[in-house]
Computed example of a mutant assay.
Amino acid sequence: MNWDDPAERAALAERVGPTEYNRLFSEHLDASIVEWVAGHAIRPVGSRFGRLFTVGNTGYAFRLLTEAQDYARNHPKEEQ
């Protein structure tokens, strides 16, 4: 399954329904984490700009893992 392909994701959602799709997508997100830094999960994603590393749910992504790590360290996630 290519989670970066919208057509494949839509086909999966149609095939398994929303509840199972959400469960599978959540598993994928957890499995794709390469590192935790300052409370942020860092994981690679495919984009129109190529492979990027996202920093948790900050809305930021970087070309290099080291850039994502630096951003996370400088913006630690606050306890909720």
Rank of each mutant, 00 (worst) to 15 (best):
W36R: 11
S32K: 00
E27L: 07
A11Y: 07
H40L: 03
R23K: 05
L24I: 03
F25M: 15
E27A: 08
H28R: 04
L24D: 05
F25A: 12
D30M: 13
D30L: 08
R15K: 09
A38L: 04
A31P: 02
A13I: 11
V37E: 02
E14Y: 08
E35S: 05
A38Q: 03
L12S: 06
A10C: 05
Y21L: 13
A41I: 07
V16K: 03
A10T: 15
R15A: 10
L29H: 09
S32I: 09
E35L: 09
E14C: 12
A31L: 08
R15V: 05
E27K: 11
Y21G: 08
S32R: 07
P18T: 08
S26H: 06
A10L: 13
W36T: 11
I33R: 11
A41P: 04
G17M: 13
A31S: 10
F25V: 09
Y21Q: 09
T19E: 14
D30F: 11
E14R: 14
A11H: 06
E14L: 15
E20A: 14
L24F: 03
R23G: 00
L24V: 05
A10V: 13
D30R: 11
R23Q: 07
G17N: 15
R15E: 04
E27D: 12
F25Q: 07
W36E: 14
S26G: 09
E27Q: 14
H40W: 00
R15M: 00
L29Y: 07
D30S: 10
E27S: 07
S32W: 00
V37L: 02
V16W: 10
E20C: 09
W36F: 07
V34A: 00
T19Y: 15
R23P: 06
L29S: 03
W36S: 01
Y21W: 13
A11R: 09
A41Q: 06
H28S: 08
